[in-house]
């Protein structure tokens, strides 16, 4: 299995005391979609900046396709802060980006036309991109990132600020790039469902180091238990009854019961409550998701993180 990216004991400090990456080691496989997840300031964007040669490590080694020297033609990047020139038209942005990567003449024109078609930007190609919607600008951004058919594509929070429809569309495009063009994609995101949907491999970063990695299923299985959420009358009594048999938490007006194979245990839990004349008004069973993994490894609630964006 070849690695597109290898980071060995990479450390990066800003000013004197701010440690952005702390002895980070990471290997990402060629041809796969890998996601880097973590809270704000965990080191995701610093990692991307280093892998794209925008920033340099203080210590450690970075190999891209086995080489220390990064071949800039092999990588494409769609960063958080866009990169689209608002004072250029969609077509001009693409033409300039293509020229920078050495495309010219008929080949360049054909590639630009192809991307405008694929990303449904043909009709707006002659408009200044400052007049584009957020979704259109993001599509143009992605088109610019892949104009030179990179082998390795970095997407730094590519769907932040997009509506659900535009997000789904972008997901499909990213999958297509991997499947049909064999591109290695490295993604950072705050959206757990995005990472779950797209990633072959997920690495959680916290405080500048990798705290967990694996496939989404592997990571979710590490959380282990399902959560049975119960709303009922006599909550205090219900809590003491359930706590005797299961790991139970009180969360405002509901009880959270952590059990393995929650669906099968549900009947027994409800039986215990009914036997004590406790009326259950609602009950749900949820499987662990990446949000739970996030919470487990970063100690931060996802809702707060996303809300902060």
């Amino acid at each position: 299995m070849k690695h597109a990216v290898e980071m060995k004991n990479v450390t990066k400090k800003y000013k004197k005391n701010v440690v952005a990456l702390n002895n980070l080691t990471l290997k990402l496989t060629e041809g796969k979609i890998s996601s880097l997840l973590g809270p704000n300031g965990s080191g995701k964007s610093t990692t991307i900046r280093m892998l794209t040669s925008l920033a340099y490590p203080d210590e450690g080694e970075i190999l891209i396709f086995g080489n220390k020297k990064i071949d800039k033609h092999l990588i494409g990047c769609v960063s958080q802060s866009s990169g689209v020139d608002p004072m250029g038209t969609g077509r001009e942005n693409l033409m300039l980006q293509g020229r920078i990567y050495g495309l010219k003449g008929k080949k360049l024109k054909e590639r630009v036309d192809e991307l405008l078609r694929v990303f449904h930007l043909q009709e707006d190609a002659g408009r200044l991109s400052k007049n584009y919607s957020g979704g259109m600008r993001r599509k143009l951004d992605l088109a610019m990132g892949i104009i030179h058919r990179p082998k390795l594509l970095f997407l730094d929070e590519p769907t932040t600020g997009l509506d659900p429809e535009a997000r789904k569309e972008l997901w499909n495009t990213i999958k297509r790039l991997q499947h049909t063009d064999g591109m290695t994609v490295i993604l950072t995101t705050h959206y757990m469902e995005e990472a779950d949907e797209l990633s072959d491999w997920i690495a959680f970063i916290n405080d500048g180091t990798i705290v967990a990695e694996g496939t989404a299923e592997e990571l979710k299985s590490k959380v282990g238990k399902d959560t049975v959420t119960i709303m009922c009358n006599k909550q205090a009594q219900a809590y003491s009854i359930l706590q005797a048999s299961y790991q139970t938490l009180e969360d405002k007006d509901q009880l959270l019961v952590m059990v393995e194979e929650g669906e099968q245990k549900l009947a027994g839990i409800l039986e215990k409550l009914r036997g004590n004349q406790i009326n259950v008004s609602s009950v749900t069973v949820s499987k662990p998701d990446l949000g739970d993994v996030y919470l487990l490894y970063t100690g931060k609630k996802l809702s707060v993180e996303v809300g902060a964006e």
Partner: peptide, 14 residues
């Protein structure tokens, strides 16, 4: 810099 254009150019082989 604000629009991310500077970083895009610095990442490129320009």
């Amino acid at each position: 810099h604000r629009e991310g254009i500077l970083d895009r150019l610095l990442i490129s082989p320009m």
